[in-house]
Every structure is written in C-alpha cells, then in structure tokens.
Design a protein around this nucleic acid. Structure first.
Lengths: 258, 258
DNA sequence: CATATTGACGTTAAATTAACAGCGAGATAT
DNA sequence: ATATCTCGCTGTTAATTTAACGTCAATATG
C-alpha cells in the first residue's frame, strides 16, 4: 500500500525531470512489467500529474506546473473523485463549463478531458495547467490578481471578465455549510464566485460532508440557489432530510466504488 | 505518436539546415513515401515551423520567430538576454510593468525578480509561471482564450482586461520590422498588443536584428510610437542611422558580455 | 499539360486494455 | 498459534484499439 505510492512518486519525479519519457524506458528503468507501469501512470494521469500519449508520458507542457500543488490535490481524494464523477452527469459535450478555484472542481477537470469537445472557463491555475494544449478543448482563463493561497486569479479584473461570459454549467465548491447557507473565507473569492453564479445557467455545488456544520467569514449563497447540491455520504439522514425539506436539491454520492 | 514526433524534429532540423528542400529530397533522404512526408510537413507547417511551397518546403520567411513557443525560447538566447538586461534600465522598483507574450519579454521577467517590489501584468503563460509565488511581487494575469502557438491568453476577454489597467512601462516585441513599421503575424495578438500600448505610459520595444527587413501579416505600430527601441548590434550603421533620422529613439545593445 | 497535392481506404505494427491468476501482507476466526 | 480469508499489487496472455504508413484515384496547381 505504501510501496505503490512511493513507486508512483518515483515515476512522477522521473518523468518530471526528463519532461517526456517512453513507456518502455519506464519499464526498463523500474524493472517492472509494462502493465504495472500502465496502471501507475493511469493513476498519475487521473490525478493530473502526468499526461499519457501513445507510447509515452509527458508532464504538462505549459511549464505552469508547480510541484507544490502536485499532492495538495490529493487530500480527501476518494471523496473528491466521487463527487467529480457524479458531477459529470450534468455536463454534455459541446457545452461551456465554468470551474471555480476549488480542488474539487480541479478533480472534475481531469475527467472533463473525456467529454470533448468542450469550452472550459476557470480562474484556477492548477486547472489551467491541466487544460492547456488539449485537442478539441477550447480553454479560457479568467485573469486577475494572482492569489497565492488559492493558486488562482481573483479581484475586480476577474469579476469583470466573468461578467462578459455565459456558461451552461458552473461547477464549484464552498468552504463551509451551516443550515442552508454556503460560506467562503475570502471576500474577494466570494465576489468572483457570485459573479460566476450570475454568469451560469445551471449551478452545481460539490461538498464533502466534512464541511457541514462549519462556518467561514463570508456568506456565499443559499443552497437553494443551486440546481444540484452534490454531497458525500456521511452527511447523515437527519441533515439530508432537513435540507430537502428546506427545498435544497440534494443528491448523495457514494464514496465507495464497488 | 512519439516516433513521429522525433521524425518531425529530424525533418525540421534538416530543412532548417538547408533552408529550402525539395519534397522528393526528403522522400529519398528519409526513405518513406511522399504521402508520409506530406503529412509530417503539414503538421510542421501548422505549428509554424516550416512553410510549404509547391514541391518544396522552406523555413518560415519571417524566420523561426512565429513558430511554436517551444521552438522559440531557445532561439537567439544570448541576444534576448542582452536585450532583457538593457530593458531593466527603464524599470524602477514600485512600478507597474506590463509584459507581452514574447519570449524576449519572458527573458525580462526572469531579471525582474531582482527589482522588487513590483506589479507585473502579462498574458504569457510561461511568464506567469515564473512570477507566481514571488515575495514582494504583485502579479496580475491577463486572462482570455488560450492560444497554443503563443502559449498565451488572447482574444476579446484579454483586450478588455488590458483596457481596465494602466502600467508605467510596457516591454514587448514584434514578429518583424520593415522600415519604421513593426509587424505581428496573428491578428488577435495585434489587438492585444495595441491595447497594451494604449494602457501604458512608457513603451519599450525589444528587437533582435534578425527581425529587420522582414514582414509579417499585420501592422502592429510605427517604431516612432515607442519611447525606446532596443535592438541588438548587427543591425548595421546604415539602417541604424536611417531609423534615427526617421525619429526612432533607437538604442543598440551589445550582445557580447565581457 | 505535367506534376504536386489531397483524400479515402487498407494494411501492418505497436500500444493499450481486459481478463485471469499468483503472490504476500494483514486481519479474523478457530 | 495456525489456518484461512481478504485485499491490493503484480505479471501473463489474448483481444482490442490506435497510430503510422503506403497505394491509388481524384483534385489542385503552376
């Protein structure tokens, strides 16, 4: 269990160092079967660390890739992946999809690569690096002031840019939930997200259950404003029923994939 | 996909070395069918590395400078570095600096890290990745539609974002120069650069001498519109004097660093 | 008109995937 | 303590998919 994770890190480091590596090179270098290499890099590609070509793997070619963010994305990965997979039900090929700067939305981005053609809009740097140089994918980055903590562009420039657009679907997350209210910690991030809400036809909120019964500094929006609220199981029946009574369109997502 | 990439690089090197090559030569030299050569050079032409004639291929008439970003960064490294170092004379700590998507401006960005505190604005992805997470440096990214060839964000979203700002200094480059006119290959890039010109108090153009006496598709601006035009030596005294007589504020930069 | 180019299609080689089986480390029950 | 079970990881093989190339006919071009 540990050994495989280490092996994956070794592979990631090796590929990042060389930029582009043939799969047979990896087979030889690590002395394992081709199949095993495939399984490793599939997972790394899933996490957005690498990109598979035919016969080789590369790092994200934009150079935007920051190793510091490589494994930050993996916190609560199982839950985020489950939410992301469920969110795909609301996206169709050809649509315009807006993603916020959350790591959950970033997980959605990795899966969106299979729903091409698409237009994707985001202010997240991590997501941006995933989506550059992808065929059949029109990518628009929301600019603005770079914010270290969120690894995203925010501020008035960003808000104005959002206001110029319309997306079919917004997929976003929040810092905390209490009752039927979603909260966000940073005031500037709130403004960007609210602009995204206004610019989108369908709005989907992705929340893992650990965020319930917490608050953050600023009110983002009421849960009833979303067309769908996807939450991981563990939320509890009582709370789920209370939310549904309050008019929230809740959908519980199973984390475990049998 | 990898094998073909290598083959394409071989072809590109071969053509660049000889300047112009007949397709039948390539067929013989690489021992593949005519159709395959066509497919390869089509892709290279699409990337902007080569140009197809009837029965032959040449390197781009305006040089390599409009080709894909990864071919551009390493070209004329010494000259770009010299220009970048000279450009620093026009930047003071505390100012707002705007950089375009050129590889020359990217070279400037690496040096700007020593002139903090600064506010830097750019639409270049490569430059953006250089400037994120730097202390005492306020970084604003201009968003927009991602363009693979330039590795930058362009389009109307970008233009509007630029129009919201004012910079003390703009540092930019051009694809080609003829007489006192600067040219740019891509129409959408022209618009962004012109917006940058309008948004900046002082404008600095960085040009290596290989770009003189060439044209590209679109007129960017007249050289007299710039507060300073930095060019590498090799431009020649005759042309330099002609430019100065025409009112261009020219400064020649020595490439050699003793 | 001669030659270059493009598009459609078939072939081949290679890479990827799926399915199945073996192995070893805990966990659990006897 | 031992046996057994489960689970994740790995390897093998076969089936499937994909990329690359060539041929030839149709079309463009100088």
């Amino acid at each position: 269990m540990i050994k495989a994770d280490e092996r994956r890190e070794e592979i990631a480091d090796y590929v990042i160092k060389l930029g582009q590596v043939r799969i047979d090179d990896l087979v030889e270098h690590f002395g394992v079967s081709r199949m095993t290499i495939h399984r490793h890099i599939d997972r790394l590609a899933q996490q957005g660390v690498l990109r598979k070509l035919h016969g080789a793997v590369t790092v994200q070619p934009s150079g935007l890739y920051e190793s510091a963010f490589r494994y930050r994305v993996t916190v609560n990965r199982a839950e985020k992946d489950a939410l992301a997979r469920a969110a795909l039900d609301y996206v169709e090929a050809g649509q315009v999809v807006m993603l916020d700067d959350s790591s959950t939305a970033n997980a959605v981005a990795t899966l969106l690569l299979d729903v091409k053609p698409l237009t994707v809009i985001t202010n997240s740097v991590a997501t941006a690096s995933l989506l550059t140089n992808v065929d059949e994918l029109d990518f628009i980055c929301l600019g603005g002031q770079y914010h270290n903590t969120y690894n995203a562009y925010i501020g008035i420039v960003c808000e104005n840019a959002v206001a110029q657009m319309r997306a079919n679907v917004l997929i976003c997350s929040a810092s905390a939930i209490t009752g039927t209210t979603a909260f966000i910690q940073d005031p500037n991030v709130v403004r960007v997200k609210q602009a995204m809400m206004a610019a989108s036809v369908k709005r989907i909120l992705l929340i893992d259950h650990a965020k319930f019964d917490r608050i953050a500094l600023h009110v983002f929006d009421d849960l009833t404003s979303f067309d769908v609220v996807l939450a991981t199981e563990g939320l509890g029946d009582a709370r789920a029923q209370a939310l549904e009574r309050a008019g929230v369109k809740l959908r519980i997502v199973k984390t475990k994939v049998p």
